[in-house]
Design a binder for these strands. Sequence first.
DNA 1: GACTAAAAGTGTAATTTTAACATTTATTAT
DNA 2: ATAATAAATGTTAAAATTACACTTTTAGTC
Lengths: 230, 230
Amino acid sequence: MTAGYELEDKVLLAVDCIIFGFDNGDLKVLLVKRDFEPEKGKWSLIGGFLKKTETLDDAARRILHTLTGMHDIYMEQLYTWSEVERDPAERTISTSFYAIIDIKQHDKELIEHHNAKWFSLSNAPKLIFDHDQMLNKAIMRLRRRTSISPIGFGLLPEKFTMKQLQKLYEAILDRKVDKRNFINKIKSMDILVKLDEKDMSSSTKGSYLFMFDQEKYDAKQTKDFYLKIS
Amino acid sequence: MTAGYELEDKVLLAVDCIIFGFDNGDLKVLLVKRDFEPEKGKWSLIGGFLKKTETLDDAARRILHTLTGMHDIYMEQLYTWSEVERDPAERTISTSFYAIIDIKQHDKELIEHHNAKWFSLSNAPKLIFDHDQMLNKAIMRLRRRTSISPIGFGLLPEKFTMKQLQKLYEAILDRKVDKRNFINKIKSMDILVKLDEKDMSSSTKGSYLFMFDQEKYDAKQTKDFYLKIS
DNA sequence: GACTAAAAGTGTAATTTTAACATTTATTAT
DNA sequence: ATAATAAATGTTAAAATTACACTTTTAGTC
C-alpha cells in the first residue's frame, strides 16, 4: 500500500505572526528587522518556517518565542498566502496568525533584545513581500471580531477602569464611542465584576476598578454572542 | 545573495474543496470516492495537491475541474489544516476552500462521470482524515456569512420566486423563517427586480418572478452591508 | 357557473434595540 | 471655601425586529 504522492511538489510553508499591542490608548504592531536574505535589514512580520514535526499553531508559537521571547500568546489563524512570486527567493506559502496583547504585560527588554520593535499602526514602515496585505487583513479581522464578540482578557491589566476598556475598543475600532452607551452595553453583557477598589491615578475622585468574570465570560463565549458598539 | 532557506523542511500542500449545492430546497455537499491510497474507496472532499507554479486558488479551481468537470466556480478560502498526523501516509498540510452553487445549473452527467456524488448534509457519509471537521467549519462559515451579507447570485435560476429564495435561506440557516418578515427584509435591501412574469408551476394563482439587480447588488457589496434574517 | 382547493400575497402592532444627548458628584489642591 | 478635574449617571426619540392571520387568485371539478 503505497501512497500516490510521489510525484507531487513540495514547498516551503512559512508562518507570519501579526502581533497587535495595546498600550496607553494606542494600537501598535510588533515588527522585526530581518537578519537574513532576501530583504535582509528590512522590516517584516514575525515569521519563520514550519517544521515537519509541528502544526502551524506550534510553529507560530515557536517562532514568536524565538524572535521576541514572548510565550503563552493565543494566536488565531488568519489566512494562507500563496502568490507564486510572493517570496522571490523560493516558492513559499505563508499562513498568517494574529493576536492582540497588552504591551505592558510583556517584558519590553526581552522583545527589544531580539530586535523586534513596536510601531503605531499609523507610522509602521513598509514591510517586505506581502506583509502589508497581511497586516491589513489582520486589522480588518480584528475590527470585525471586536464588534462581534467581546475581547479583553489579557489585553488589560487584571484590574482596569471603564475608561481603559473604552480606550481599548476605540483603539481597535479607530473611532470614538459614546461613554454612556458603551458602559450600558458592557454592563448588559454581564461579564464584568465591579470591585470596591478605585484607581486614583487619573483623577481626584478616582474611578472604580473592574475585573472580567472568567466564568460568565466563558459561558457566553460558547453561544457566540454579539456585541455591537454604537 | 543566497536565501537562508536551505535547511528548512518542505511539505506537501493539499487543497480540499467543499462544494455546497442547493437543489429543490435541499442543501447538499459534493463528495468523491477516493481512487488512490491511503483510504482508497472512501468518500472525501474534492482534493489534490498544489503545484509549484500555481496559487492555492488556481489549484482549487484546477482540482475541482479535474474531479468534477465544473468550472467558473468562485471559491473562498476557509482554513489551513496542519495536524501532524492528519494524513497518515505523509506530512501534508491542507487548505480548504468552499463554494455554494445551484445544482441544476451544473451538468449532472459531467459530475457523475467523475464519480463525484451529491449528498444531503443530513446523510453524508463519514469522510476521510479531517474532512468532517472541514465540512463542519464550512457549514458554520456559510451560515454566518449568510446572515451577514446576501448570497444568491448563481444559486438560483436567473428568474426565481420569493419562495425559492426563502427556501435557499432556510436550507442554509437550517431553520424556518417568517414569510412576511423575510419578504420585507429582502425588499428593504433593494437588490431585486420584480418581473411581470409569473411562475405557474406550483400554484393555480402563480407567483411573480424576480431577478437580482446586479448593479444595485454590486453597489451595496462594497459597503459590506448587513442582512439579518429574522 | 358555482364551489373547492392550494398556494400567493399582504399589514400592523408590540417589543426591543440603538442612538443621541448634559448634568451632577466626589475629591484634592489651593 | 473654592476651583478644578475627571467620574458617574438616565431619559427620550427613533429604528429595527418580531409575532401574528386573513384575503386574493385561479384552475379544476361537479
